[in-house]
Amino acid sequence: MVSSMTRFIGKRLLLAVPTIILVTLLVFVLMELSPTDPAAVLAGDNPTPERLAEIRELHGFDRPFLTRYLEWGWNALQGDFGVSPVTHQSVLADLMYRLPITASLVVLALFFSLVMGVVLGTVAALNKGGVVDWLMNSIANLLMAIPPFVAAVLLVLFLAILSPVFPATGYADLSTGIGPWLQFTTLPALSLAIIPGALLTRQVRGALVDALEEDYVRTARAKGLQRRLIVGKHAAKNAAVPVVTVLGLVITQMFGGAVVVERIFAIPGLGSVSVESVLNGDLITLQGLVLLVAVLVTVVNLCVDASYGYFNPRLRTR
């Protein structure tokens, strides 16, 4: 079993490598076609042509496209993402400082959305066709229509300004203790959790309704098993499979949502750095960010796929 699992993961990893290379290449090509001249960004206001040429030579902008791409890729493989021309800091060090901030935010958001999805989805499934089911479905539909940044502003209004339970903006690192960290991350995580929570509600409801109609549930019921055990043990385990499959999508969405949410709450994570580098014209940091996020998303999807294989052994041989 171990070997089949290892092979499954190994195969997925091999398939992921060309995709990641292609993402970075696509971004490189796009930047090449970009009308903004990176040298002009670095040179500041009214540069002389000599100064521009000097900068081009210094940063190697005058060399052929493929040479630059291969050099960047080779350096990135060795952990050198270059130096930001704006902050004069190592891109990798900067991203690695920010990664745990965004990751911890996403984990908390994932927790919130799972709680919401499992609770609302189970309640809906157990009342299938009834008023409660309709209500849960309507709530899910409504919440789907509230993008993270709208949710963030509304949450700040209600829970930070009108009734000051949480601070409106700012960030405290996990190292300062879990209490202060939760104070600052609860609202952003909630904003990120709303749409995924609604998605999971639908998914849990659908999967549980299907599972409850299976023969083994009828058998369990015929045996006289308690309802709580039937739902909690027999149905829930099988209903988990379709729910786990959307987790990859959900986590990817959350990393995207973090772009706006971190900006609103002034959290110094990966989302903030992406917006800052766009506003500063810092393409080198963006390239590093693209690579990091592509790897991250691939690893997350791999974990999801692997757990899917764990739930459903038939998939492993594929």
Binding site: T36, F255, V260, S274
Partner: peptide, 25 residues
């Protein structure tokens, strides 16, 4: 399909931000 897969590797909003960075706001 490979190119499309590559595009889908990035979270939507991050992809949009990168493209805006390249094209200009």
């Amino acid at each position: 399909s490979r190119v499309i897969d590559a595009l889908m590797t990035l979270p939507p909003l991050i992809l949009a931000v990168v493209v805006v960075a390249i094209l200009g706001p």
